[in-house]
């Protein structure tokens, strides 16, 4: 029971990060029908920016501001930089290809992904880095927290922060998309871009908005990941792949789907590693996904794509 709870907690932590990444894929895919391979690298950039901001604010040993503010500030810094990066990627790599054959923006996305990953390596080296959140405020993030009653499973503060922050961001996104005018315009654009344009929606602005939201979430995910585990320049590709997978499981283009997909993927990874095999866990996860895509390509929350001719 303890093991199961602990694995569930692991899955929840990992899954909420995946969900944040998946949301970015979903938003962009929903509107542009573009598989944004560079999204995973935006995530890595977020982790690096957060790291840089942390150093600027005095580092782990001597933070210049209280810890809660420190966490908020580095997350916001990463979100802001990534939002700008996302807009730039859209403007320079995807917009010129909006009316090109479907394959063209995909290849452009691969190029951007490569460019970002190796630029990070050029500037910061290939070494792994970590935030060393363990030593922040002499271990307050790891040592405090609560124990689940009746078990020995501890839930440290850092995990609570990561999970809550991820869910808070998802809620904010949900409100932005469903309650604001731009959000509704996004939904309309994703259903039918041309019709939306004819109804007077500024499609370009909506697309930029989607990139801002998605990339900011990826930046936040980068920081939340970096607080718990080391990162390195080429990490984005694999994590991005998992984020995309999560988006597909949930039904690409659907926001609740991306959240559910991220969590499912996190749980699947945690349970296979815990109960089946650490060695084959990647394989098992991928096989499950391929099977999933073959039999329900529209995902859990997606609608089957009916092609009109």
């Amino acid at each position: 029971m303890d093991v199961f709870l602990q694995l569930t907690l692991n899955g929840l932590t990992l899954g909420s990060v995946y969900a944040l990444i998946a949301l970015g894929y979903s938003l962009v895919y929903g509107i542009l029908k573009l598989l944004n391979f560079a999204h995973g690298d935006v995530f890595t950039v977020g982790a690096f920016v957060g790291f840089g901001a942390l150093q600027l604010l005095g580092g782990v040993a001597h933070p210049a501001v209280p810890i809660w503010l420190l966490l908020v500030l580095i997350t916001l810094a990463a979100m802001a930089v990534c939002a700008v990066l996302g807009v730039a990627i859209e403007r320079f790599a995807y917009r010129p290809l909006r009316d090109a054959p479907r394959i063209a923006p995909l290849i452009s996305a691969l190029g951007v992904s490569f460019f970002l990953a190796y630029s990070l390596q050029l500037l910061f080296g290939a070494d792994q880095r970590d935030y060393d959140a363990f030593n922040l405020g002499s271990g307050v993030l790891f040592m405090t927290g609560f124990t689940i009653p009746g078990t020995e499973v501890r839930v440290p503060l850092l995990r609570i922060v990561v999970i809550l922050c991820a869910f808070a961001l998802m809620v904010v996104l949900w409100l932005l998309v469903t309650r604001t005018k731009t959000g509704k315009a996004m939904t309309a654009t994703s259903i039918d871009r041309e019709a939306a344009a004819m109804m007077g929606i500024n499609v370009d602005r909506v697309i930029v908005f989607a990139f801002v939201l998605g990339s900011a979430l990826a930046g936040a995910a980068g920081v939340l990941f970096g607080l718990r585990a080391p990162f390195y320049p080429s990490l984005g590709f694999l994590v991005g792949l998992k984020g995309f997978t999560a988006a597909v499981i949930g039904g690409i283009g659907s926001i609740p789907g991306a959240m559910a997909g991220g969590l499912i993927l996190g749980f699947a990874e945690a349970y296979t590693q815990g109960y089946v095999s650490t060695r084959w866990s990647d394989l098992i996860v991928f096989v499950i996904l391929v099977t999933f895509m073959l039999f329900r390509p529209q995902g859990l929350f997606g609608k089957a794509d009916i092609k009109k001719v």
């Binding site: 093991v3 602990q6 694995l7 692991n10 899955g11 932590t13 990992l14 792994q128 990941f225 718990r228 585990a229 080391p230 990162f231 390195y232 990490l235 694999l238 990874e269 945690a270 590693q273 815990g274 650490t278 060695r279 990647d282």
Partner: peptide, 17 residues
């Protein structure tokens, strides 16, 4: 003996084992 991919950096489920 446990085995994990060299690309993994979050080890929490290994730790659980």
């Amino acid at each position: 003996r446990l085995s994990t991919s060299v690309t993994t950096t979050d080890f929490s489920s290994l730790v659980t084992k």
